[in-house]
């Protein structure tokens, strides 16, 4: 028996969300009194792979073949499922990233496993049961799912579990699973990745703005505040609908759901659909000139006032905080 964790790389590097998944999988393995095996697919250098042992991987399977250099959903799912069979994995853990969302269900079907997506806590394994809490109803609620299949596939919500360093040793070995040509039909034509900005789903800090900003030309101060904090930028639905900002920045019920450590909402009133996407943020700050804005009811800190006066002062305050640090 074992626990298997898939460690997705972004251009050869592992992000924090992957170390979270490894730390989570290690805790699951400890609960089940078994070892943790990681599987990496693609071109990742040995020193990067070696980092996985620090978070508890007892062994890392390295799949670094020409065919699988770039992500192909079907083929990657097949390889991960093969590794799970070979290692007799009882639990397969992935990060609930855009790629993880495409992989987990396919792996689940291949292994006849229950698929629990968007897990936010460790499983309850007392007395041989297997129950996992996940978010549901677009973050307005949580559902505890009991898996009754022998194998379970769990995808972990980014920023829901902490990174835990362990003093441990792990070895790296090559793993060559045969790949069916049928699994390699998708061809990547273009990849665009902004490397100079924090990506929203992974961000620990998010600065978001809404219609209160009056127009796209006023986003300079939002970007400046975000950049000083090392935060990602986000927006409300009316803003992306009006093309002031790209759809990829829209957080809320029909956009993306995020759970950063800090969410600063500027000029967003807090419609129920928007709150659904951000309510699992650890700390929420609301800046709005309307004291009756519903967002204040779910905020930890608030300022009632004009964003155009307040944000420049916040920028100065962050600059002086950084200067004194």
């Amino acid at each position: 028996m074992s626990v298997l964790v898939y460690v997705e790389n972004a251009e050869g590097k592992f992000k924090k969300s992957i170390f979270e998944a490894v730390s989570y999988a290690k805790s699951v393995a400890a609960q089940l009194d078994t070892s943790l095996i990681a599987i990496s697919i693609g071109n990742v250098a040995q020193d990067e792979l070696a980092k996985l042992a620090k978070y508890g991987a007892n062994k890392t399977l390295n799949v670094n073949t020409e065919q699988l250099k770039t992500f192909v959903n079907q083929a990657y799912a097949s390889v991960i499922a093969e590794a799970a069979k070979k290692e007799n994995a009882e639990v397969v853990v992935l990060s609930n990233s855009f790629s993880g969302k495409g992989l987990a269900p396919r792996i689940g079907v291949k292994l006849e496993a229950a698929v629990i997506s968007g897990a936010i806590e460790l499983p309850d394994t007392t007395g041989g049961q297997f129950k996992v809490k996940r978010s549901a109803f677009s973050n307005k609620a949580f559902a505890t799912v009991e898996a009754t299949s022998k194998v379970k596939v769990i995808s972990l919500t980014p920023n829901a579990y902490q990174v835990i360093e362990k003093a441990g040793e792990g070895n790296i070995e090559d793993f060559n699973a045969p790949v069916d040509q049928q699994d390699l039909k998708a061809v990547i034509k273009e990849v665009v990745r902004a490397t100079d900005k924090v990506s929203l789903p992974d961000a620990e800090l998010v600065v978001s703005a809404g219609r209160g900003l009056k127009g796209p030309e006023n986003w300079g101060m939002i970007e400046e505040l975000a950049s000083l904090l090392g935060a990602a930028t986000a927006c409300s639905k009316p803003v992306s609908d009006a093309d002031w900002r790209p759809h990829s920045e829209h957080v809320g019920q029909t956009g993306i759901a995020i759970s950063p450590n800090l969410y600063i909402a500027i000029g967003i009133s807090g419609a129920i659909q928007h709150l659904a996407g951000v309510s699992s943020s650890k700390v929420i700050v609301v800046i709005n000139k309307d004291p009756e804005a519903p967002f204040f009811k779910v905020a930890d800190y608030g300022i009632v006032g004009d964003a155009f006066e307040i944000v420049p002062k916040l920028i100065e305050a962050v600059k002086s905080l950084k200067a004194n640090a």
């Binding site: 969302k101 269900p105 698929v115 549901a136 559902a143």
Partner: peptide, 14 residues
């Protein structure tokens, strides 16, 4: 928007 599993498409593919 109720159970948010995002699973049906990939399961169907498989």
């Amino acid at each position: 928007i109720d159970y948010n599993g995002a699973q049906v498409a990939a399961m169907l593919g498989e």
